[in-house]
Design a protein around this nucleic acid. Sequence first.
RNA 1: GUGGAUGUAGCUCAGCUGGUAGAGCGCGGGAUUGUGGUUCCCGAUGUCGCGGGUUCAAACCCCGUCUUCCACCCCA
Length: 457
Amino acid sequence: MAGPMLEAKTLKGFRDFLPDSMVPRQAMIRKIEAVFERHGFQPLMTPALEYLETLMGKYGEEGDKLLYRFEDHGGRQVALRYDLTVPLARVVAQHRAELQLPFRRYHIAPVWRADKPQRGRFREFMQCDADIAGANTAIADAEVLMTGLGVLEALGVDGAVLHLNHRDVLFAVVQAAGVVEPQRQIACIRAIDKLDKLPPERIADEMATEAGLAREAALELIDFFVTARGIHAAEGTENESDYLKRIVETRLQGEALERALAAIARTETVRQLVEAQFPGKIHFDVSIARGLDYYTGVIYETRLTDARVAGIGAVMSGGRYDGLIGMFGKEQIPAVGISLGLDRLLAALQELGLVARSHAVPVYVTVFGPQDAAAALEVAQLLRRAGLQVEVDAVGGKLGKQLERASKRGARLAILVGADEQAARQAVIKDLADGQQHRVGLDALAATARQLLDTAD
RNA sequence: GUGGAUGUAGCUCAGCUGGUAGAGCGCGGGAUUGUGGUUCCCGAUGUCGCGGGUUCAAACCCCGUCUUCCACCCCA
């Protein structure tokens, strides 16, 4: 015996994915990859570990606290990546000369956050990102959003709505309420983001303590957002952007007004471009804020509308970050991206019954005895060369046991190759769904097997 | 970081006011040695999360600790 027995365990917030959960997961990843590639994105991989300074200060105070950080054996301060966006920014700056702009890349990989685990929330989880670096146009924004909606469409998700907003609209409105300092503006925007969860009173309190905003001004500000949100619910009235335009025109002037109007116009352009291809899937929602510091332009979140999964939170979000890449180099390169939370979306799909039950190995080849091994393997190879997924019984024993294992593995067909069959260059295919057996020559085996697999069980 | 729960067989759980553990599912074996999944028979499940305390006696009461989960915060 070697040493004391170890307890087999995983770290809090970290998970193993056994085949039963891995199969639908991988199927989902493949669909997402296909959509990304169909939209011109190319794969990128980056290290899990980055220098701490690469990641620090990009996400805001809360984000910095959630960084998984430590010192490596060489005394370097390092951190596990918190998202896939900052590593992309680093890559674009670092490999600027090797990349052709605009650069479209997708990245499906785990990220780590030292968060407190909860339902739908883990310390290691998978993100699926698609970003365009080097283009600051409404078309780039729209392309990224259409990619995201394309993924949802490919996955069969119907009830999802993209909520679109623009950072500058938020800043303009907050500024119009009398908050001038950027830090306090961000604090206000964070407070607005909680509109869904907290009563106005509480939000006003938060604005008072976090941003030093007078209670009256805070309530007025909140009222503005509540009204703005009501707009798209009401029919026959002006739309969100017209309403916003009207409000900012009465409250702002000069450069601030220009900026706000430009943001509203840009958002509306993007919304219309996307709306034309995905009717009803995108709304201008002035109340969404996004917590991360690096966003500079359009921002968005996707929520599932089905009541069964409404509590699951945002499943796909992102925005434009024109200043981030510039933090790593002399050149300012604008970028926009979208990030999809695989774990959450998968959980939602399972909840909605949109995940097909995974079928295991379809064909199971039994082995009568040691002297029949070669014949069994020959048959297995024959079927595999024909493209079928085939498992050969690797344990042996009574035929009954082997068939039992075949059933437990979820196989649809069992192949029997005894002495009689070998002598006649034949094999018996047993359909485990109905128990029927078919004796066929080896030359017809693959075709018959395929035919049986194609029939419903 | 704050608050609330949870932890008993591989899994889902039961175990009344303290008297050294149970069910279902699953698992193993068997019911004419070339036939599974259905049925029948038999069988094993276990430091009752871990450590300490109270008691003649603790799965049950007390303290601590870890785990998982829920809410808040933030987010995917």
